[in-house]
């Protein structure tokens, strides 16, 4: 188990390094002057400023030296400077990160819990009216663009019905403290988190249902029936645990999609996280911020992956005991 986790950690570090190199290559592959790219192309910088940048980042030096400078900068968490916002990118991201972590992890948990429960129910009632309803709803969610669901949800629940706030992270100017603040943030969180989780709920539901049906055809389920076990016990103890393995793998793979989806949800709901930051940076062509957010979101994905790997190890003794 220790070796397994250690190996995953090493892989994660290599992937992060790879992304740093990729970022560096992208800056240089972009059409135009890398200095202009870093400064933000829309004339945020004058000529003298660009010249300073070139010296500062050694853009007159050989490629490998530049690469080394860039990589070592990122390792010290120097993600560059946003000339648009006049702030270090790391600082910008650091300020916005908690909001995004709250949003994505809530969506992650909601989607897995609801998705797995719905999938189990659909599998148990396979072929019935309920199964058809659950499967059809999942199919619809699966086909719906994230940003559109977010828009429609804010339209219905915020604009038309006025039940929930459809904007921001907390009520501006209210200055709540303690529990009141937590509740305030919680109500603001409901719409973004549930719309972000919707698509993934559908994915986990479909996967769980398919996996439950697949496992229920395996030999050991027949053994369990031959022992005289009640079918509810067989479902829970024998089928569900085995069926969850591919769902956990999928959850790890989907973590990246959730972080990516946050860009859309945060944009629609004006959620002050790094996704919203990225959207603003896109409009302003603020490349350092875009690349910084990209790097941090990849790091978040690796963190989610590590958690699902750990979970997998806990559930599956073959991984826990062999490595």
């Amino acid at each position: 188990m220790f070796g397994f986790i250690a190996a995953r950690l090493v892989t994660a570090v290599f992937i992060l390094l790879g992304i740093v190199v990729l970022n560096f290559i992208l800056i240089h592959a972009a059409p135009g002057d890398p200095a202009a790219v870093m400064a933000g192309e829309a004339g945020a910088a004058d000529e003298k400023f660009l010249a300073d940048l070139r010296t500062q980042f050694g853009l007159d030096q050989p490629f490998t030296v530049q690469l080394w400078n860039y990589v070592s900068g990122v390792i010290q968490l120097d993600l560059g400077f946003s000339y648009r916002q006049q702030m270090p990118v790391a600082q910008l991201i650091w300020d916005r990160l908690p909001a995004t972590l709250l949003l994505t992890s809530t969506a992650f948990v909601i989607s897995i819990v609801i998705g797995v429960i719905a999938g189990v129910l659909a599998a148990q009632m396979q072929g019935t009216w309920w199964d058809t309803v659950i499967s059809t709803v999942a199919l619809l969610f699966y086909a719906t663009p994230l940003f559109w669901v977010a828009l429609m949800a804010s339209l219905v629940f915020s604009v038309f019905l006025g039940w929930l706030p459809g904007f921001g992270y907390e009520t501006i100017g209210a200055n709540y403290t303690g529990l009141a603040r937590v509740l305030d943030i919680g109500t603001h969180l409901i719409l973004p988190a549930s719309t972000l989780g919707l698509f993934f709920t559908a994915i986990y539901m479909r996967m769980t249902r398919a996996s439950m049906l697949e496992v229920s055809r395996l030999d050991f389920v027949k053994t369990a029936r031959a022992k005289g076990l009640r079918s509810s016990v067989i479902q829970r103890r024998h089928i569900l645990r085995n069926a969850l393995l591919p769902v956990i793998t999928l959850a790890g793979l989907q973590a990246g999609q959730i972080v990516g989806g946050a860009v859309l949800t945060e944009t629609v709901f004006a959620w002050p996280g790094i996704g919203r930051l990225m959207f603003e940076a896109i409009n302003q062509r603020d490349y350092n911020v875009i690349l910084g957010v990209f790097f941090i979101s990849a790091a978040m994905v690796l963190l989610f992956n590590l958690i699902t790997d750990l979970l997998y190890g806990v559930v599956d003794p073959r991984i826990r005991l062999t490595s």
Binding site: L218, D219, F220, K222, T223, A224, R225, A226, K227, G228, L229, R237, H238, R241, N242, V315, D316, P317, R318
Partner: peptide, 19 residues
């Protein structure tokens, strides 16, 4: 089942719950 009448199967490799 299991009390009065029991059964064993052909494939021992897949007849037990792996977890």
């Amino acid at each position: 089942r299991g009390r009065e009448i029991s059964m064993i199967f052909q494939e021992p490799l897949s007849a037990l719950n792996p977890l």
